[in-house]
Design a binder for these strands. Structure first.
Lengths: 209, 209
DNA sequence: CATAATTTTGAACGACGTTCACAACAGACG
DNA sequence: CGTCTGTTGTGAACGTCGTTCAAAATTATG
């Protein structure tokens, strides 16, 4: 019968959603096994029939976050393309700004993507890594327009650098540790960074040799 | 008598050094109160006479890390200045590469600077924030040469953006999660990023309006 | 030297993720 | 319907963590 397996799937779904809510409200450190068990109405030990351990749960939440981020970046990229099909730099800026907006609107879920560390001895499963890589296409596509004569290798390296750089600006800009940078200012920083790199590429293409 | 206060200071020093060793070897998650107490030869509870809580201990270790980083950046900046006094961009590159080298050579201590979060309800003390700000001067000085006619505000914003961008590239490049990026390649990425931004500044100064 | 103040001690506390012996249960067969 | 068997849910118990605290030990004071 489907009763057992189906209800397990349903409960697993509830569990992931409860975990997502908990992280979104209280951050990764606010995710408690006992609280989740209470919320989905099962015993503490039953969690481990739905999920190997907390790491897997966090990865599943991360998977949902990445999927939502992917949709966001897609929309931003398409909108920019519709507005100015030949402005590849503008598309890069749009993706970067969308990334920043997503991080601002989902601060704790977004942070969890980076601050979570697997328990000692465990490795990030392959599917989780693949999901992260998927997102790169939003950067690689405009870059291909911007650098038609560069090799795939060079483009990939530059794409990763660009992503890392924007990510760094967003991560430090949204850090609660220091005073929060106002939205407009952070957006300007990001746009300036991307445009400066693009202008640099145009002026001195040999820099990425 | 100095006996009490002096021995406390001595023990506190030992404690911080033991904590630094523990973090350097096993990461922030490998820092255990009981282990430290054993190492400096005191009871578990006595730690709380030397330090308010673990957060303070981590901040003290962070302070030492920042001091060593400061020395490293200073040396790199001065060496670049001696080699080419008027090459401000080269000095920026040198500082960025030194930052990357420091992170690579002190991966866990460096990571701790960013991954540590205060316990709920506590705030990062003012002296710790000031120490972080101190480091900005290594970026601000070359930037002042590079943009003599920009305002302090603009320069500061660009400096922070530049730091954040380089930090992001280093952070993601050294992530153990994915395959480690080879040293040479990471250095090239960082140099390319900084030089691209500098070239962009030269070609399109209006971008930082 | 006696007395008061301070400091060290380690058992105890509460919270955490995870495990496990056992109880409850579901389905198969007579 | 009753019994047997394998699976699933249960929550107390385990080990670990940072932190606290009453008592013991040590140090300072008159």
């Amino acid at each position: 019968m489907t009763t057992t397996a189906a209800r397990r799937d349903r409960q697993r779904q509830q569990l992931v959603e409860a975990a997502e809510r908990a992280i979104a409200e209280k951050g990764l450190a606010g995710l408690k096994a006992r609280e989740l068990a209470g919320e989905i109405g099962c015993a503490l030990g039953a969690l481990y029939n739905l999920v190997r351990d907390m790491d897997e749960l966090v990865l599943r939440v991360g998977s949902r976050t990445l999927a939502r981020l992917d949709v966001t970046l897609d929309r931003a990229s398409q909108a920019a393309f519709s507005a100015a099909p030949q402005d590849a730099a503008g598309r890069l800026v749009a993706v970067a700004l969308a990334y920043c907006a997503f991080a601002r609107e989902n601060p704790r879920l977004w942070r969890t993507l980076f601050e979570h560390r697997m328990a000692e001895g465990s490795e990030v499963p392959e599917w989780a890594v693949a999901e992260q890589m998927q997102l790169f296409r939003h950067i690689m596509a405009p870059l291909a327009d911007l650098l038609p004569q560069a090799g795939d290798q060079q483009r990939f390296l530059l794409g990763r650098t660009l992503f890392s750089a924007v990510h760094g600006v967003v991560a430090i800009g949204l850090e609660e540790k220091l005073v929060a940078v106002p939205r407009q200012e952070l957006d300007r920083q990001i746009e300036a960074l991307v445009r400066l790199v693009c202008a640099g590429l145009a002026a001195e293409p040999r820099l990425i040799r």
